[in-house]
Each structure stands twice: as structure tokens, then as C-alpha cells.
């Protein structure tokens, strides 16, 4: 087939199609939406962070009762439910990059004030970074995207499972390994589905109200399953990890924030610096393992004894993460510049 022939063939397109086209064009012009304001998404993002902080601050006074008298081993009180501080330490390190930052902040602050906001952020970290990788895979591998997505999801699940198993084996000699791994895998799958669902909706069905409703329904069902699973697993897990009522209370909140956040990320994330983001994610996991095991080995001691190692991990992770943010921001500015020049 020659180019000439293809051009001529397209020129001879059926007039019915052209009629359809012009009708649709007229309809679109008639119901044209007002111009988008780019500040809205940034304001929404800021509002999302504000929501996290505000919710955390509102919860904080009723959470902390006694954190100082006996160091970090003592208990929090939350509506009569006790939460062991060790479990909170452990919980922080589920998130790869933020966990290191959290450690640093706690080390600086030397108190429990920052704990709850960071705990909420914990639930966002893995999905956010994973979202970056998924998007990268989708953008780069148009033909084999499905297999690549499955590969990345498998990588996440294997990482989470291995992480859980290693921790369980080292702490409890594997006594709670299976329920613990199941719990974390379910949580990881739910997060992954949320982010993937929102990303796909954002990419392909932004203007399709039915798809948005489907995702909202799916989110609600996932939320219920999550809460139910937490309720079922609570008696077993509460023994050592205190994953009980407080998780039950916080998960709906965090999962809603996660939904909003992943949706917003779908709008602002770009493919630039994705390799760095991937590297950051892997480094974060390694750092997380390292710091977690080290801390859990001596749970009453904050990482002040080996400042050099901690600082190295903190600097590397923070640098990578900031680099990613700068990359996103730069791309946004460049796109804006290009758009303006075109206009």
C-alpha cells in the first residue's frame, strides 16, 4: 500500500461517517465545558494533604494518653483499645521510603506527636510509588502492558510476603506468619486495585459516568471487605501486633484518602524520572527492611546509636523522593509552557 493510496482512501471516506462527525462536532461545541483551571487539581491535592493532617490532629488528643513515663514500650489508649507502641513502630516500616523519613522525624522529635499523621501516610506510600511504576509500564509497553502490569503486581506481592515472613520468622519464629502474610497481602491487593482502577478510569474513561460509579461501588465493597477482614483477623493479630479496633477505624479513612489521592495522582503524574522512582522504591524497601529489623531487635531504643548508617539511608531515600517530586513539577511546567506556545 502506498501513502498516496491511503490518503485517497481516507479522502473517499463514507459520507455517513462525515455526517456523524459533523453532528458530534456540533453537539460538542454546543455543550462545551468551561475552560479547565489547572490550579484546581493542585488545590485538591493540597486539600487532600490538609485532610490527612486535620484528621490526624483531631484524632490525636484521644489517642495519646501515656507515652513518656515508660519510654516507647508503653501503651496508647484509643477508646478503651490498647495499642502497643512496638506494633506502631513495626507498622511504620511497611511503607518503604516514608518509613525512613518517619524514623528520622521521630528521632528528631523524640515523642509520639507525629505518629498518627505518619501512620496515615504509611498507607499511601506503597500505592503511590507503585502507581508510578504501573503508569511507567503502561506508557512504555503498549503491546505487552498487561503482562508487565501483572509482573509489577507480582513483584509487590512477593515483596510484601517476603517482608512479612522475614519479620515474623525473626520475631515470633513464624508463629503468626501465615495470617499476618495473608492480611498484608489482602491489604496490598486492595491498595493495588484501588490505584490501578483509578488510574485506568483516569486514563480511558474520564468522561464516562458509569465507569466512575462502578469504581465507586467497587471501592465501597473493597472497603467493607477490608473492614470485615480486619474484624476477623483482629483477635489473632491483636495478641502481638494490636491490629484491632484502631486499624478498623483508620482503614476506612485512609482508604478514602488513598482513593482521592490516587485519582489526583492520575492527573499529575508523568513518565519523566520514572526510572529514578523505581530505583527509589527498591532502595526504600531495602532500607525499610534494614531499619525495621534493626529497630525490632532493640525495640526500646531509637536509632540514635548508629547515626551514620541511619543518616545515609535517610539522605538517599529523601534525595530520591525529592528528585521525583522535582521531576514531576518540572514536567508540569514544561507541558504548560508547550501548551501556551501552541496557543
Amino acid at each position: 500500500m502506498t501513502q498516496e493510496k491511503l490518503i485517497d482512501a481516507i479522502t473517499d471516506l463514507d459520507s455517513g461517517i462525515l455526517n456523524r462527525y459533523f453532528d458530534m462536532k456540533a453537539n460538542l461545541a454546543a455543550k462545551k465545558k468551561p475552560k479547565k483551571r489547572t490550579w484546581v487539581k493542585w488545590a485538591s491535592l493540597a486539600a487532600c494533604f490538609a485532610l490527612i493532617i486535620t484528621a490526624s490532629m483531631l484524632l490525636y488528643p484521644s489517642v495519646v494518653e501515656d507515652i513518656s513515663s515508660d519510654g516507647y514500650e508503653n501503651l496508647f489508649l484509643f477508646g478503651g483499645i490498647t495499642v502497643n507502641m512496638n506494633s506502631i513502630f513495626w507498622a511504620f516500616f511497611i511503607a518503604p521510603v516514608f518509613s525512613v523519613v518517619c524514623t528520622f522525624l521521630m528521632w528528631l522529635i523524640d515523642s509520639g506527636i507525629i505518629i498518627l499523621p505518619l501512620w496515615l501516610i504509611r498507607d499511601l506510600c506503597i500505592p503511590i510509588l507503585h502507581f508510578c511504576i504501573l503508569k511507567r509500564c503502561i506508557m512504555k509497553n503498549k503491546i505487552q502492558k498487561k503482562s508487565t502490569i501483572w509482573l509489577v503486581i507480582a513483584l509487590l506481592l512477593v515483596t510484601v510476603a517476603a517482608d512479612s515472613f522475614v519479620l515474623e520468622y525473626l520475631i515470633l519464629k513464624g508463629r503468626l506468619a501465615i495470617p499476618h502474610i495473608i492480611f498484608r497481602l489482602i491489604w496490598a491487593i486492595l491498595c493495588g486495585l484501588f490505584v490501578l482502577g483509578h488510574t485506568l478510569v483516569e486514563r480511558f474513561y474520564r468522561n464516562n459516568i458509569h465507569c466512575n460509579i462502578m469504581v465507586a461501588v467497587g471501592s465501597t465493597i473493597a472497603l467493607c471487605i477490608n473492614a470485615f477482614m480486619t474484624y476477623l483477623l483482629a483477635p489473632t493479630l491483636a495478641t502481638k501486633y494490636a491490629i484491632d479496633g484502631i486499624e478498623l477505624f483508620l482503614m476506612p479513612l485512609s482508604i478514602i484518602i488513598l482513593s482521592v489521592y490516587s485519582h489526583l495522582l492520575g492527573r499529575i503524574m508523568t513518565r519523566r524520572f520514572m526510572f529514578v522512582k523505581l530505583t527509589g522504591w527498591l532502595l526504600g524497601i531495602i532500607a525499610s527492611e534494614f531499619v525495621t529489623l534493626w529497630l525490632l531487635g532493640t525495640p526500646r531504643i531509637l536509632p540514635t546509636e548508629d547515626k551514620v548508617t541511619t543518616i545515609i539511608w535517610i539522605v538517599v531515600s529523601a534525595f530520591v523522593f525529592i528528585w521525583c517530586l522535582v521531576g514531576v513539577f518540572r514536567t508540569y511546567l514544561e507541558n504548560r509552557k508547550i501548551q501556551r506556545s501552541k496557543e
Partner: peptide
């Protein structure tokens, strides 16, 4: 292959597309 036939084939394909993709 006649251009007309090719045009017909392309037209058939485009007709089968949803409105948005046709547009």
C-alpha cells in the same frame, strides 16, 4: 487493489468505532 475498495474497508472500520473514536 482499487482505492475505492480500500476506502470502503476503512469506512467499514471507522463506522464500527464508537462515536468518540470515530471523531
Amino acid at each position: 487493489i482499487e482505492t475505492k475498495e480500500l476506502a470502503k474497508s476503512i469506512s467499514n472500520f471507522v463506522s464500527s468505532l464508537p462515536d468518540r473514536q470515530m471523531f
